[in-house]
């Protein structure tokens, strides 16, 4: 059995195994640290900064920081939650996130985080970039308007040889996540579903199943994102 470490989150005494990332260690103790680019089973990347916490007074990402003995962590504070809300608002204005017309609405992590942090309207002006809807693949539709470039699909969706179905194209504000056309031609329905599920927003859609779940029964209709962790103490 590996060594146990003790740490404190917002005054709460917590204990977990050594070496876990802070997001996981907190989860084991019933503390929710919000994440977006992070996905269970994938190597953390720390790019979206939603999981920003203060460790001994210094701002850092909880998904990439291993827990250490004696750590004092600030998580659910007004200051950090404001930073998180700001990031979500930036994501909303930098793409075209029109929730009423989105198949993923109700199951979308970006939307759920906006609900959790009570975003009523973004404080920034909308960019309204012109993006394409790429419906040229047999199994999926790639909706670039909604892509937040979190790389979860690139990192997580691979075939049995480890070849990736998605890749980055271009740089900076022109960055796009694009499917590999050859790989897409052979994509199985199960793999397509996996890709849709790994996408936190509605950017990867399996064909012909949009709005299959009625309003009221979707993942974040009744309870905020993270409440399953908080109720599991």
């Amino acid at each position: 059995m590996s060594k146990k470490v003790n740490f404190v989150i917002d005054g709460k005494e917590c204990q977990s195994e050594e070496g876990l990332y802070l997001v996981e260690a907190a989860k084991e103790n019933g503390v929710y640290i919000p994440t977006l680019c992070n996905y269970e089973g994938l190597k953390p990347k720390g790019s979206c900064r939603i999981c920003s916490v203060k460790i001994d007074g210094r701002l850092t990402t909880a998904c990439t920081s291993p827990v250490q003995d004696g750590m004092k962590i600030e998580n659910n504070t007004d200051e950090l939650n404001e930073v998180r809300k700001e990031i979500i608002e930036l994501l909303f204005v930098s793409g075209n996130h029109f929730c009423p017309a989105c198949e993923k609405s109700g199951n979308c992590e970006l939307q759920a985080l906006a609900y959790r942090f009570k975003m009523m309207a973004p404080r920034f002006p909308f960019a309204f970039p012109r993006k394409e809807v790429d419906a040229s693949y047999p199994m999926i539709i790639k909706e670039q308007n909604r892509c937040i470039l979190c790389k979860r699909c690139i990192r997580g969706i691979k075939d049995e040889d480890g070849k990736r179905y998605f890749a980055y194209r271009n740089r900076g504000q022109d960055s796009l996540v694009v499917p590999d056309r050859k790989m897409m031609a052979e994509m199985s329905p199960e793999k397509a579903q996996e890709a849709m599920d790994i996408c936190p927003v509605g950017s990867i859609l399996v064909r012909e199943i949009g709005w299959i779940e009625p309003i009221g029964t979707r993942k974040y209709d009744k309870a905020p994102i993270g409440s399953d962790i908080e109720n599991n103490q």
């Binding site: 909303f92 075209n96 996130h97 029109f98 929730c99 009423p100 017309a101 009523m120 309207a121 973004p122 909308f126 309204f128 970039p129 012109r130 993006k131």
Partner: peptide, 19 residues
Amino acid sequence: VSVGECAIMGGLPAMRNGI
């Protein structure tokens, strides 16, 4: 008071934005 998605972010009509 802005009421609804269209008042807040342009909504369906704003799908022409960028074109």
